[in-house]
Design a binder for these strands. Sequence first.
DNA 1: CTATTAATTGTAATTTTGACATTTAATAGA
DNA 2: TCTATTAAATGTCAAAATTACAATTAATAG
Lengths: 235, 235
Amino acid sequence: MKNKKAPHIAVAIDCIVFGFDGTDLKLLLIQRGFNPELHKWSLMGGYVNPEESVDDASVRILHQLTGLQGVYLEQLHAFGAVQRDTTERTVSIAYFALIDIARYKQQLSADYHAEWFPIRDFPSLIFDHNEMVELAKKRLQYKAALHPVVFELLPQKFTLPQIQSMYDAVYEINFDKRNFSRKLLSTDLLIKLDEKDKLGSKKGAFYYTLNKDKYKENLYKIFSLIITPDNLQFL
Amino acid sequence: MKNKKAPHIAVAIDCIVFGFDGTDLKLLLIQRGFNPELHKWSLMGGYVNPEESVDDASVRILHQLTGLQGVYLEQLHAFGAVQRDTTERTVSIAYFALIDIARYKQQLSADYHAEWFPIRDFPSLIFDHNEMVELAKKRLQYKAALHPVVFELLPQKFTLPQIQSMYDAVYEINFDKRNFSRKLLSTDLLIKLDEKDKLGSKKGAFYYTLNKDKYKENLYKIFSLIITPDNLQFL
DNA sequence: CTATTAATTGTAATTTTGACATTTAATAGA
DNA sequence: TCTATTAAATGTCAAAATTACAATTAATAG
């Protein structure tokens, strides 16, 4: 009952930062500079202060530990096992961020000891952070199946091969490029530009941008873009 | 940084309990027996103890305040605004439960002052509980679009009209019964029984049960059962 | 000018959807 | 016993979407 005296518990934030570099999906990690677990890899974490909201704390902590600002950030899940933190009983509220790696290369200065790791090959993490990353991956797959949220991983201008690489990376499969592009273009969410990206190939691939006007009204068209029996894990 | 001294905050649980009675979707609420907000309606809530996990706390609190045990319970979201609780700064982790009202009528004894309200017409709630219910409704719609989780709302034996009433209630629309049943049956998730429910009509409607064997392997077939542009709100 | 590489575009059979009406099973009352 | 009533169950067809495939095009490098 809430009229009894409230026990107080440490409340922390942990941030899972996903990044895409045009080819691979990556995970941002930092090496701990203090005990316990000194020098081990971990997510960006910190405590929630009494005078700030949990959402504000996530923004502050991500910024303090990486320099990142203005990125897409969404609450994932509260992790509340009693022994999850060896220091003291701590409830951690995990957030995940989605960023275009190239765009935030400046912000992510060398002052911070944050490093990108391939999502398919990163070091073992402290506490229950591995579990957090696993859940975040699933949530991303889940959410992307119904929502064009993964465009947060792309630059403003992107090519069809890049989008497909992104979806391939998120779902860890290879979509048929003919069917994929047909379906994606049928959403009317993309605007084709005259410009081409000539870095990836001799022929070059046309740039596209998100059609902000149609973004909201056609959100639903992204539905079922991805869902197939074999590639979607469940929460 | 986590090596600083951790501030401690009250951590609470709030439970949104959805129930289905064969016709309508309902919400379980209790009337507060203490100040502040005495006699006002609220979700089932309580504090997380230092020696119990957050998940365990949600189970305990739901049981203590309603008598309900063994029901489907899933974490929804952590609510962390500074002023959300007028008593003191409290982070609340909301959970939602899905139950078949008839099945738990016994457990939900009169000892507890919990009452069912229609989801479309329930009293204004304390603190940010209205917001919690809104989010839970959306999450249920979202999740049900990809996952047969709403079967938790039905009894073991149910009729096609009952399932459709449930989906109609969850999405607040009326599906075409011919297309709905065709699609649902195509999933192979249901087993038709010989028995009929004669309460609802003269003709009676055949009972079905969930095919537990196919449940996991055919989970994906429930996909896109529901999704249409006009009935899905976004998180 | 030609070979190479990757982007772009195409097609046909199959399946699924969406919109719509009729038939069937059981009971209650004449 | 027959008939009216009520709600469940089932059927159809055109349109759209999906799937599984391969051929063409644009640009560069040698």
